[in-house]
Design a protein around this nucleic acid. Structure first.
Lengths: 218, 218
DNA sequence: CAAAAACTTGACTACTTGGTCAAAATGCAG
DNA sequence: CTGCATTTTGACCAAGTAGTCAAGTTTTTG
């Protein structure tokens, strides 16, 4: 008994206390760091507990299973990660909308690289924990936006291009800078940390993709 | 004693027997499968041994440490994985050379997705086993080809574009189809397996990137 | 301010897993 | 075919790790 977020018997509202809120946050923040660096199997509960500044049994009081932390984290992250896609406005100017989307994704890649790596690692390993999410939430959203892009192409506002592959290309390219950070650093060296690097990256990526899909004279 | 590939005392030539050759191959093939699916930490020696059809101690007779298998595999794979980049001909036609390179990479992504995932996983986790390789071999090669691309840009044969970001974009995009395969499948469904899919992918990627870097009228 | 509920933890268990070892089986050179 | 080298494996060990438990401490509440 006394399982966190589980009432005495079956009273409904599942209230959370102040302490629960603080500690769950501490745990999830620590876990994001560790999971994104070492992957699910490579992470130990002790590592997370240590980083969160509490004992292992205490951590397990809030999340009875290692899996629980991991799944909670993924769910929390995914919504946020997908949000920019939903914001593409079907009524806006195609090139401007995609410019905005790509810019947002590059910014997120720099500001939350752990989230990107957590997700990348999960998908790379076959998405065992989120394959449902992918088919039930991601697919419909992408289908929706793909239809918009396809319409834009039909209206001659974009060069003929497969919308799905375009979306994949944007994801791949923007997340590359988070997921393959060490490789980027190994090759570009000290430039990576420097102030203007994100802008330089954005400029390069935008230039290629947007020119690649701008409507072309026949 | 009787350590494989270690002679009685110190006689030089390190000969390998027929059986050694067969079994090392069996182990490495099995290991590629397992490591690329579960990552280093997520893989157990027993899994590899089972898949290779031999007992764990026997496997350890050929590779005394788990790390040995992993590193051998990475080394074997990396050279092959990088080869297409080296083939870019500085004297060839820029668009044609890059078309060839991108096509090769997409084909590799489909024919050897495990290699791509093995590598992706390693880099994603900070490249602990190959950071030396990245700075000593990959960087010089990329620097070299970046210089070529920069020259092409200078000669007006390509639109102004940062060569490093262009290379990253090609890597990201092509390897995406191997590394994020489950996601691609979740979204594009049965299309992925179908015969023409690779060609369709190649066409889309080539169209965007090549049009994105084709020299533009001022 | 007491009693109840919520929270915290040291000590422990059960299990997984990388790696060892000694002895048996097999291959091979002379 | 004989004796030495190579290969193979069952049984085992030690370390690491997910998760339990019972007993304490702190916070909340009536």
């Amino acid at each position: 008994m006394a399982r966190a977020a589980k009432k005495k018997a079956n009273e409904a509202p599942e209230k959370t206390t102040r302490i629960q809120e603080i500690n769950r946050r501490l745990i999830l923040d620590a876990a994001l760091d560790v999971f994104s660096t070492y992957g699910f199997r490579g992470t130990t509960i002790d590592q997370i507990a240590e980083k969160a500044g509490m004992s292992k049994p205490n951590l397990l009081y809030y999340f009875p299973r290692k899996q629980n932390i991991y799944v909670t984290l993924l769910e929390e992250t995914l919504a946020e990660w997908l949000a920019p896609l939903a914001e593409i406005d079907p009524e806006g100017d195609p090139i401007e909308q995609l410019r905005k989307y790509i810019t947002l994704k590059i910014n997120m890649s720099e500001s939350h690289p752990e989230a990107s790596r957590l997700f990348a690692n999960e998908v790379l390993h076959g998405a065992p924990a989120i394959s449902d999410f992918l088919s039930k939430h991601l697919k419909p959203l992408v289908d929706d936006k793909a239809a918009v892009i396809r319409r834009w192409v039909g209206e001659g506002k974009l060069a003929p291009v497969d919308p799905y592959h375009l979306i994949f290309m944007i994801w791949a390219t923007t997340q590359h800078y988070a997921d393959f950070d060490v490789q980027v650093r190994a090759i570009m060296g000290s430039q990576v940390g420097r102030p203007g690097f994100r802008e330089q990256t954005a400029q390069a990526v935008l230039s290629i993709i947007l020119n690649g899909i701008r409507p072309r004279p026949v």
